[in-house]
Design a protein around this nucleic acid. Structure first.
Length: 278
DNA sequence: AGCTACTCCTGGTAGC
DNA sequence: TGCTACCAGGAGTAGC
């Protein structure tokens, strides 16, 4: 499922195919994907504008469009891949692939949003802050400062797993990278945040950054048929997983058996020996 | 503040 | 083989 590294990879790879291209048509093949907007509304907002920015914030891809020859975006296409969303650029004359939910025509080519489970969104707005929820710091940016993280973490009483999944606390982590970061830091997913020692909290801060940066280097994780980069390539970080999906197998650090249990409705993987409770 | 449960969705798979 | 039941899960929301 796309988390920060996968979204970053998609944004990077799709950018050269859309930047400077002008929109010639828009269609929401599944209306909800486009936020309930009609094709006429979408066309009125986008047609004639040109993609001038492609950025990532948390798990969102922000694509800025400017009118005429302007370089200043006044309209944004905000994409969230959720579980199964993909962005693909294809020749406009080709039929859209199965499960295509939203299409932006760019002259001879077309940006397609493909999403079997229909959880993803392609929202059009004049200001991304109108559609983005409250989001915590970007874990790979300088603003994600260790001391502040330690302080904020220890001020909360939630269990680590749901706290780290909370996008308002830290942006961009999902089920996979939370499990991987907790293992790397040697922290049990059920530990209450305020019980984490300062050194362990610092270790967690470092682990989050390391895991995410390494996953971006490998273009994310593809362990099922879903996530692919816009070029159709799978990522390769799944080969680096220490705990995710490895229940029943030996821990690569200590040889203990990797456990799986449900925490807050999420499959949670950990080594009970490396990640002692409390 | 923080917990649980529910919703949205469908492809894949386990079980019969 | 063909059927049904269930599961995966990001994030929003409701209720306690």
């Amino acid at each position: 499922m796309p988390e920060l590294p996968e979204v970053e990879t998609v944004a990077r790879l799709v950018a050269p195919d859309v930047l400077q291209k002008r929109v010639t048509g828009v269609r929401a093949l599944w209306r909800k994907t486009g936020g309930g907007r009609s094709d006429a509304e979408l066309e009125a907002a986008l047609v004639g504008r040109r993609f001038v920015r492609v950025e990532r914030r948390a798990k969102y891809i922000l694509m800025g469009l400017a009118p005429g020859r302007s370089k200043l975006p006044d309209t944004w296409l905000v994409v969230h891949l959720r579980m199964t969303g993909r962005l693909v650029v294809a020749p406009a004359r080709e039929e859209p692939a199965a499960h295509t939910r939203f299409s932006v025509e760019l002259g001879p080519r077309r940006l397609d949003f493909i999403d079997p489970r229909k959880f993803g969104r392609c929202l059009v707005t004049s200001d991304p802050t109108h559609v983005l929820p409250e989001l915590g710091p970007e874990p790979l940016e300088d603003g994600f400062e260790a001391e502040a993280f330690v302080r904020d973490l220890r001020a909360r009483k939630r269990q680590l797993k749901p706290l780290l999944l909370d996008q308002a606390f830290v942006a961009g982590l999902g089920n996979i990278y939370v499990d991987e970061a907790l293992h790397r830091a040697g922290l049990h997913p059920l530990t209450p945040a305020h019980r984490v020692t300062r050194p362990k909290a610092r270790a967690l801060h470092a682990a989050i950054r390391t895991v995410l940066a390494e996953a971006i280097e490998r273009e994310g994780s593809s362990f099922d048929t879903f996530y692919r980069t816009p070029t159709g390539q799978p990522g390769s970080y799944q080969h680096q997983f220490q705990v995710y999906g490895r229940q029943g197998q030996p821990c690569r650090t200590c040889g203990g058996e990797i456990q799986k249990r449900v925490v807050g409705q999420r499959g949670t993987h950990f080594c009970a020996r490396c990640q002692r409770r409390r």
